[in-house]
């Protein structure tokens, strides 16, 4: 019975991570072909042991070598990393005060404020990103309002630039930042702040020395929840970004659709996964530490 219980999460991991990863990894070692599916070799089980041997003999790391030969790939990885880091910081900057506000609000308001954060999620993500196109375009609402107030004389060009991508990402991932920070702040013991003030701390330094360190776990959790999906983001840069927004998700799309080169596309995906595993492992370790600290 106990073994069975332990087996469940492993089966989960096997079915939803290891098997798909193995398939992608296998394709990344294959060669391009004009066929369905568009790569060789495919495993022919009917041929038994000889087929298996021939199958493995044809696999090689050529596609990974290709990735190192063209500067497009590492530039795209780097640019995605940069966009993900900046977006995470911006989301933190916007999300923390909101989480703080909700945690400090009177008890009876909290449920409603919480709803306000989650409510936009009831609309399709795609529609929400599309509506930003309407807001940010040259003839869009934002420019119309700014022109009307008289802040600007010429419409601002925001859509199809990196600024629009940052706006889209911060907007989309904000709840992922707010929720864990809120969870951390809500548990915070107010008497600690009172003690700090009794001991001569100003309100600001009490916030900086007591509140922020105690919500550190929430900040870390929120940052990872934003950073990890952002680095591979495709929809937001392709709708809001311009042709000069370089992200690995777009490169992957082009390998897959324009070149129809599934093997190279798979190699790009495997490398992306390896890059992401590092923060994920750090995240896991952090979670574990927190659990141990709580015990």
């Amino acid at each position: 019975m106990r073994r069975l219980l332990i087996a469940v999460p492993f089966l989960w991991l096997l079915a939803l991570f290891i098997v798909p990863f193995a398939i992608v990894f296998k394709i990344s070692l294959s060669d391009l072909a004009v066929a369905i599916p568009p790569y060789t070799p495919t495993l022919d089980i009917a041929e038994g042991w000889a087929g298996l041997k021939a199958f493995f003999a044809e696999l090689d790391f050529e596609n990974y070598i290709w990735l190192t030969e063209d500067d497009l790939y590492w530039k795209a990885y780097l640019s995605s990393f940069k966009i993900a880091v900046i977006s995470t910081l911006l989301t933190l900057l916007v999300g923390y005060p909101i989480a703080y506000g909700i945690a400090r609000a009177p008890q009876e308001w909290r449920a409603m404020l919480f709803m306000l954060v989650i409510l936009p999620f009831w609309t399709s993500f795609l529609i929400r990103v599309y509506s930003w196109m309407g807001i940010l375009s040259q003839e869009g609402y934002l420019n119309q309002v700014l022109l009307w107030i008289g802040v600007i004389n010429e419409p601002l060009i925001i859509l199809n630039t990196n600024i629009a991508v940052y706006i889209g990402i911060v907007y989309t991932y904000l709840p992922f930042m707010i929720l864990p920070i809120y969870a951390a702040l809500e548990k915070l013991d107010i008497s600690l702040l009172e003690a700090a003030e009794d001991l001569g701390c100003s309100r600001f330094s009490a916030f900086w020395l007591v509140t922020v360190p105690l919500s550190k776990q929430g900040i870390i959790a929120g940052s990872f929840l934003v950073f990890i999906p952002t680095i591979g983001e495709f929809v937001i840069p392709s709708l809001l970004g311009g042709s000069r927004t370089l992200m690995i998700g777009k490169v992957l799309w082009e390998e897959f659709f324009s070149n129809r080169d599934w093997p190279v596309a798979s190699a790009v995906a495997v490398v992306l996964l390896l890059i992401l595993i590092i923060p994920i492992v750090l995240f896991q370790r952090n979670e574990q530490k927190q659990r141990e600290a709580n015990q």
Partner: peptide
């Protein structure tokens, strides 16, 4: 052919993105 297609797509990406 696939080899030429790759050159074409790469060039097109470079034209569009500057990279």
């Amino acid at each position: 052919p696939p080899k030429v297609q790759r050159v074409v797509t790469r060039m097109w990406t470079k034209i569009k993105s500057g990279t």
